[in-house]
């Protein structure tokens, strides 16, 4: 399953809820303001690091760059473009957007 999160974890609980309800082996793609969840140094980083034991985290490069955060990505988080976003949708049997 692919989970898509578009909210900053510093503003809303979408990422936290997503990580609570994502089964082992699923993928999480962070887009739009969700990209802040993939960045280093903040108070939410530990939660993302811990989640990476069970789920794969991806972040949308164009949204990361737009926000000046391209050099802050947590190690082990995969950066994808829109084509990579499409591939993730195709590779997983279903997807849920945590709006």
């Amino acid at each position: 399953m692919l989970h898509i999160v578009n909210k900053s974890p510093y503003e809303r609980n979408s990422l936290e809820s997503c990580l609570r309800l994502a089964t082992n082996g699923s993928a999480v793609l962070l887009i739009e303001d969700g990209i802040y969840g993939a960045t280093k140094g903040g108070s939410f980083e530990g939660k993302v690091q811990a989640a990476m034991a069970g789920v794969k985290i991806y972040v949308l490069g164009p949204d990361l760059s737009a926000r000046g955060m391209a050099d802050r990505v947590i190690d082990g988080v995969n950066v994808v473009d829109y084509g990579g976003f499409v591939d993730l949708v195709a590779e997983h049997s279903n997807c849920q957007s945590w709006l």
């Binding site: 309800l21 089964t23 699923s26 279903n94 997807c95 849920q96 945590w98 709006l99």
Partner: peptide
């Protein structure tokens, strides 16, 4: 509970969220 809900979500064909 969260684990049951997670499993239920994972088995769906289509999830529509608002």
């Amino acid at each position: 509970d969260r684990a049951e809900m997670a499993a239920k979500m994972a088995e769906q064909d289509v999830l529509i969220s608002f």
